[in-house]
Design a protein around this nucleic acid. Structure first.
Length: 490
RNA sequence: GCGGGUGUAGCUCAGUGGUAGAGCGUCACGUUGCCAACGUGAAUGUCGUCGGUUCAAGUCCGAUCACCCGCUCCA
């Protein structure tokens, strides 16, 4: 089995078959932005549907949500994104290499190097770079003044310039869930442990984008915030890491291309108690293994932060709605019974729940499913290209053909198609030789093809041809729908 | 942001200053009874973009945009 190993081949495949195009291509393209074509949008929608089915539909303890992308600016103050998503960067005058200020180390003649680096707030000036060493060229103290690199996209809300307020495109969907925690509790009779799930676009002004749709500035996330009682968080963390890992396997990702990667202590985000990535072995990049999804134990950090944010509103208004002039209100002593706390009826007590967060990249997953399904095999001296999509992910489920355009076969095939398309995403084709039509569907990843032939005229049966084995079976037209539904595991 | 590479038809690519090409794919007609058949015909390009040199630029020069590889970075 020959397997593609170059990103270029994947890009070409995506373009050729109408899966993924570069954004604004006729204008020369816009960096890091991509569009999903006719087959791509079906595939991506199927990935989202499969996620939603596994995480929401099949579970009694998870509900869904769809939040707006624009949110109150204070949300990002409370979450830490407004400060800590803004890294300070400086540039070496000698070799023009950019480095994060907090990652620079002192030269050998300076004092001991600070062990722990952390993110730095904008405006927290006072950086002495005179003894810092450029990691690229080794020059000491040759840096420009630190500059802020804001990772959130900004825009103005309000048509009047004077009343316009700066708002941000969300850098993650998670905060919309935390902000709606109270609403969901009050309206849906959920009880801890329970989760809230959301799929949607997020935006980050990444310093560098990379590798096709793998890291883009506009991307789609599927996130679950699972709220649980403190003390049970570690067990739920285990539950979700396995649940999520198996989801990829069930949808056909090969086991040898999937693995966990535990985050070490000093790699953890400031809010996280534990984090593990699910990685896929992509055919690009320095190390092939790249993150598809992170599962984090976010503790009670976010809800506690939003309780502080709620008390900061007046200060924000008084500051002229300028986030950089606002300090988050201090946390109340009795925060455990604050407005975002949960009352446990059994134990008769209030607490801020812990949160386990599986956060998946939809675009990355879609790419992984695409890459993993791609296969080439030798058939009668010819190369057969095919996408071995797991049926629920396949953009087209069933293609319907007349064997030849004679003896009323097209009419019968057309009728079958019109019936089937009410249940599955179908495709009708009567152009060219039958073999060519089969191969076209192979490259689109269509699991099954139905062909009307001479025998159909005699006994009302059709052939159903399997993508992977190329084998055919005869099925009565009256049982066709049920047969296909069964084979497609829908 | 640095270094290297690439950009010509839908795709893969040839084309080293003198009329823009091939294979595959697409479409039409005919043929065609199960795995990329055949015949005939057709459509498709501001050669990434802008500027310069030249009698003449896909080709040389400059800038710019985009992508790939390697650094750097990566909640």
């Amino acid at each position: 089995m020959a397997k593609i190993t170059k990103l270029d081949d994947i890009v070409a495949l995506c373009k050729r078959r109408g899966f993924i195009f570069q954004s604004s291509e006729i204008y020369g393209g816009l960096a890091s932005c991509y569009d999903y074509g006719p087959l791509g949008v079906e595939l991506k929608n199927n990935v989202k549907r499969a996620w939603w089915k596994a995480v929401v539909q099949m579970r009694d303890d998870v509900v869904g949500l769809d939040c707006s992308i624009l949110m109150h600016p204070l949300v990002w103050k409370a979450s830490g994104h407004a400060d800590k998503f803004a890294d300070l960067v400086c540039e070496c005058r000698k070799c023009n290499t950019r480095s994060r200020v907090d990652h620079l180390k002192d030269g050998p003649d300076a004092g001991p190097v600070a062990e722990h680096t952390s993110h730095v707030s904008v405006g927290a000036g006072g950086w002495d770079l005179s003894k810092k060493v450029c990691p690229a060229c080794g020059a000491v103290g040759q840096f420009t003044e630190p500059m802020a690199f804001n990772l959130m996209f900004q825009t103005q809300m309000g048509a009047n310039v004077e009343d316009a307020m700066t708002v941000f495109l969300r850098p993650e969907t998670a905060q919309g869930i935390f902000v709606n925690f109270r609403n969901v509790l009050d309206t849906t009779r959920v009880k801890i442990p329970f989760g809230i799930a959301q799929i949607g676009k997020s935006f980050r002004n990444e310093v560098t984008t990379k590798a096709f749709i793998f890291r883009t500035r506009e991307f789609e996330q599927a996130e679950l915030e699972f709220f649980c009682e403190p003390g049970t968080d570690e067990q739920w963390f285990e539950h979700w890491r396995h649940e999520r890992f198996n989801w990829y396997l069930r949808l056909g990702i090969r086991k040898e291309n999937l693995r966990f990667r535990e985050h070490s202590k000093d790699e953890l985000a400031h809010y996280a108690k534990a984090c593990v990535d699910i990685e896929y072995r992509f055919p690009f990049g320095s190390g092939d293994w790249q993150e598809l999804e992170g599962i984090a134990n976010r503790t009670d950090y976010d809800l506690r932060q939003h309780q502080r944010g709620m008390k900061t509103i007046n200060a924000w208004i008084e500051s002229g709605k300028d986030l950089s002039k606002v300090t988050l209100a201090p946390e109340a002593e009795d925060y455990q019974s604050g407005p975002l706390s949960y009352f446990d009826d059994q134990k008769r007590c209030r607490y801020i729940p812990y949160v386990i967060e599986p956060s998946a990249g939809i675009d990355r997953s879609t790419l992984a499913f695409l890459v993993d399904a791609y296969d080439e095999e030798e058939v009668r001296g010819e190369t057969r290209n095919l996408l071995r999509f797991h049926p629920p992910l396949a953009p087209i489920k069933v293609a319907v053909f007349p064997l030849v355009n004679r003896e009323g076969m097209p009419d019968i095939a057309r009728n079958i198609y019109d019936d089937l398309k009410r249940y599955f995403n179908c495709f009708y084709d009567d152009k060219g030789a039958i073999g060519r039509r089969y191969r076209r569907q192979d490259e689109a990843g269509t699991p099954l093809c139905v062909t009307v032939d001479g025998q159909t005229l005699q006994d009302q049966t059709v052939t159903v041809r399997d993508r992977d084995s190329m084998e055919q079976v005869r099925v009565s037209t009256s049982q066709l729908k049920d047969y296909l539904r069964d084979r497609l595991e829908l």
